[in-house]
Simulated assay, not measured.
Amino acid sequence: MRRRDALRTGGVLLGTALAGCTLHPPTVADIVIDNRVHADRTVTITVTRLRDGERVLAETVDLTSSGRTTFHDPITESGDYRVSVVVADGPSGTYTWTVPQRADPAQLTIIVRSDSISFNTVDQ
């Protein structure tokens, strides 16, 4: 009986010790730029972490007519980020994105139209 009690207690202690290891997985976030214009577009995106001003993404991409591009995991920690988008010979926009600590990846979809840019967060 003592052996069973020891094994039971050991299992409980081990489970308790490891319980916090999976509660807070790393935060990741994807960014998608979707060109809704029937023309090729050159888009520059800059993402800055507001806490310390660090630029976590700065890219210029050429999107085909009705094309899209995805940046996988440029954001790896929760917090507030400023997302700036400039379309060559087109609109520009800025968005403050609060990325929460979460198990599933967050996603920001940026929709480029001929005269505007919109920002939509997506729960995955």
Rank of each mutant, 00 (worst) to 15 (best):
L18P: 03
P74S: 03
L23E: 13
A17G: 10
T22Q: 10
S84Q: 09
G79F: 04
L14D: 11
F71S: 05
P26H: 06
T16V: 07
I75Q: 02
V85C: 07
D52Y: 04
D40Q: 08
G10C: 14
V43W: 01
I31Q: 12
R55D: 09
D73L: 01
R51S: 14
D5H: 10
R51G: 02
S84T: 08
A39G: 00
E59V: 06
D30E: 12
D30S: 15
L14A: 15
E77H: 06
I33E: 07
V61H: 01
H38Q: 10
V87G: 03
G67R: 08
S66R: 14
L50N: 08
E54L: 13
L50Q: 09
D80H: 07
V87F: 07
V43M: 03
T69L: 05
V12H: 08
T60R: 09
G11C: 13
T22W: 13
D5G: 12
R68W: 09
D80S: 11
F71W: 10
G10F: 13
L18I: 15
P74K: 03
T22G: 14
G53N: 10
T44L: 00
E59F: 01
T16I: 04
V37G: 05
R51I: 04
R8C: 09
D80R: 11
S78Y: 06
A6E: 15
V37P: 02
D52F: 04
V83S: 01
S78Q: 11
T48D: 07
R82A: 09
A88W: 00
L63P: 01
L7A: 13
P74L: 02
H38M: 04
A39N: 06
T64P: 11
L18C: 15
